[in-house]
Design a protein around this nucleic acid. Structure first.
Ligand SMILES: [Zn+2]
Ligand SMILES: [Zn+2]
Ligand SMILES: [Zn+2]
Ligand SMILES: [Zn+2]
Lengths: 169, 169
DNA sequence: AAGTCAATGTTATATTATAACATTAATTTA
DNA sequence: TAAATTAATGTTATAATATAACATTGACTT
């Protein structure tokens, strides 16, 4: 089996890229992880994950419900929230608090607290791993607070949108 | 006029401290800033700020509405949200995205994006200034994304709650 | 085949937030 | 000062997000 090599650059999410490959890689990882952890990969779960993978933009629970309904799935709120809970719990998706919306994880397989870059022009989101984003607290704070989880969402403008703006002017 | 000296330690929010002084200092800063910036400090705005200052715990818009109603203010949702918008816009309050709740700012006077430590036991929140909390992004990311604002919320357990837990065991 | 449990389905309702327009109070201008 | 303007508050209605509680289904065990 040929090993697929993808460039692990976070900012690719904002640019034109081979999203089909991007999608397939994530989907494969999802299948693999479910298999390994003996998690049931039901049609509903698969469909929701598929929706989350569409285009690096977070989507709301009610958007998901709309799309589920169009595809013939049941679509009352708990349907979406339960699957989202499952995906988040298992490290396959994240909630973007800023937008009350959800996105597929870029490093699936275990619970973690990544940093998100959110472009306010194109609404795309990139997930950074620990290596690329570190929160440095002073010693005193560290000693006084036991960190369990962190929400880090950076809002700004991605390079693609920035360049478009520059060209326009 | 005697200058009041307060210890600028963020973690004080989690501990027993002279909250009366804490409260009065914030309230004074609020008055001073409104005066300087020529902002109208109306009874409603004052009351909401007062509520936000109560105990270092974020409160929801509908909690605020309840309290306003008890004090004889009008209390339909826009009343709360408008005042909160004003306070946030002017740098006197922040929204804690994790809880959809609001808290008085610890360094009032200008818009900023602080880091919050949120204790999941006692629900108290401490706001850290830039000096005590820095987000370090790698060069590549910095060059590809123009940061405008950040949401940083750390969830964990404060020292006070942690000690209580240890004693119990 | 009966029992168990996880997943999904369903109904109802809670919580958070905004849109749109009306009234009042403060400030500015004539 | 009276009229005009604007900022703040009041009001009604509704949108958007999320959960509680219970029913049904289907897979897996025993
Ligand atoms: Zn992609
Ligand atoms: Zn962009
Ligand atoms: Zn205090
Ligand atoms: Zn605590």
């Amino acid at each position: 089996m040929k090993k697929i090599q993808i460039k692990k650059e976070v900012s690719k999410n904002f640019k034109k890229h081979n999203h089909k490959l991007c999608y397939e890689t994530s989907m494969k990882a999802f299948h693999k992880n479910c298999l390994e952890k003996n998690l049931k990969l039901t049609p509903l779960r698969l469909k929701v994950f598929e929706l989350l993978l569409k285009d690096h933009r977070p989507i709301g629970a009610y958007q998901i419900l709309d799309m589920l309904s169009k595809e013939g799935f049941s679509s009352t709120p708990p349907i979406a929230y339960r699957v989202l809970d499952f995906l988040i719990e298992q490290g396959f998706a994240h909630k973007i608090e800023r937008f009350n919306a959800f996105i597929a994880c870029s490093h699936p397989g275990s619970k973690h607290s990544p940093t998100f870059m959110i472009c306010r022009k194109c609404d795309k989101v990139a997930e950074m791993c620990e290596k690329d984003s570190r929160l440095k607290l002073d010693k005193k704070s560290l000693s006084e607070f036991q960190i369990e989880e962190s929400i880090i969402e950076i809002i700004g403008i991605c390079k693609s949108c920035n360049q478009l703006e520059t060209i326009k002017c």
